[in-house]
Write a protein that binds this DNA or RNA. Structure first.
Lengths: 222, 222
DNA sequence: TCCAACATGTAACCGGTTACATGATTCA
DNA sequence: TGAATCATGTAACCGGTTACATGTTGGA
């Protein structure tokens, strides 16, 4: 579970409470890993029971007590072990792609609208990220966190690259779609390309036996 | 839930069983939406109870009976409604980015190794996708599914673009990291950049009040 | 006066994964 | 003979989301 290690990573910078973790978490790695407080608290408890962090109650007269978590030696070891292992990756899930895949089932204009909408969202995200970068610089600089700042920046780069690639793809896709004839689409919304499933299955099987390498490649989970 | 609509999308092509859905699902949209049979069966049942699909048992003497699902008019309506709505998107979760973010906590060489490993994986994925594209062409062409084939292809484009962007970013990142001095990293694996969390929090708050627009942008969930 | 911030949680739910179960047929 | 394919599921688990609960302090 990556959340555990993200928390360890932050606690490796210094001891803090769940509440503070949330506050530092969101603006820094929130763009590629979200976590709610309601998930953090039990996760911290779990880390404690595993001996990877320690907790100390800080009594406060005026405000509720704080539970300050610190990383242990075991925790630091676990963190660097995890960091050096190859990264796993989560199954990609893209509802937009499902819509595009079944694009023939909706009118041309509507499909393009859906794509444009997503492109707009992506542009907004990019703008937000770029503004955020300013903040990152200020924040990291103020604390002499040059090292942390450098890597922070790299992850923002990744995000920006990812989003721009998305926009480029959408623009190219819209272009291709616009060149299609209206008849290509299923204007009356009846069955599109009704297929004989049995025959299709036979065909798939045939391809599978005839060119197994290709099929193996195709089904390889990314 | 996108799975429901993906199933409706396929059933809109023709009636089939859960087992067949799985077989057509994997090679076509498996690269951006995975689903196990153990999830499909109950989902189909749910769709049936919602009146979006109908089921007919096809008795087979030699093999187990088949439950053939067909889309209903309500189902077709639900599908095209869903298709025309703007796509939601799933929170991005990138364990690799967490590793990069805490990159200062591991030796330079190890961080680069992690990145290279991921780049290799991406290259393999791209190769598989490109081979798969051949299959797609054959399969779609055979059935006169030109329309379906066209959109299928678009989604493959998206995947390829996404993966190449990933590789490009990794290569640039490795480049930047390689230019860093060894001292930039935390060779002895002690605390990196220990920070005074309270002061950091104060600073964050100050930035938040001084330049709220930037912060708003930053925390906007993508 | 009312809302935001501080600070901690619990509980229900939900989508998805993994493991397990069953039992026939066909092909290497 | 034993693995793969056909064909259907159930059950436990897991990470994450949403909703709810509690009680204080300080500022608009």
């Amino acid at each position: 579970m990556s959340l555990k290690h993200a928390l360890l990573g932050f606690l490796n910078y210094g001891s803090m409470t769940g509440y503070e973790l949330k506050k530092i978490f969101d603006p820094s790695i929130g763009h590629f890993w979200n976590a709610e407080l309601s998930q953090m608290y039990p996760t911290l408890k779990q880390l404690e029971s595993e001996g990877l962090v320690e907790m100390e109650v800080e009594v406060q007269a005026d405000k509720p007590n704080r539970k300050v978590y610190s990383i242990t030696d075991d925790g630091a070891r676990e963190l660097s072990d995890w960091l050096t292992q190859p990264a796993t990756h989560v199954q990609i899930r893209e509802p937009l792609m499902i819509k595009v895949f079944f694009g023939a089932s909706l009118p041309k204009g509507e499909l393009i609208a859906v794509l444009r909408h997503r492109a707009d969202e992506l542009r907004q995200t990019i703008e937000a990220q770029e503004q955020g970068r300013v903040l990152i610089g200020k924040f990291a600089g103020t604390f002499g966190l040059d090292r942390a700042g450098f890597f922070w920046d790299l992850t923002v780069d990744a995000g920006l690259k990812h989003y721009s690639a998305g926009i480029e793809w959408i623009e190219a896709a819209i272009d291709k779609i616009e060149r299609l004839d209206e008849s290509f689409f299923d204007a009356e919304r009846s069955r599109v390309d009704a297929i004989d499933v049995r025959r299709a299955m036979e065909m798939l099987d045939k391809l599978k036996t005839e060119m197994p390498e290709v099929f193996a490649g195709l089904t390889t989970r990314e």
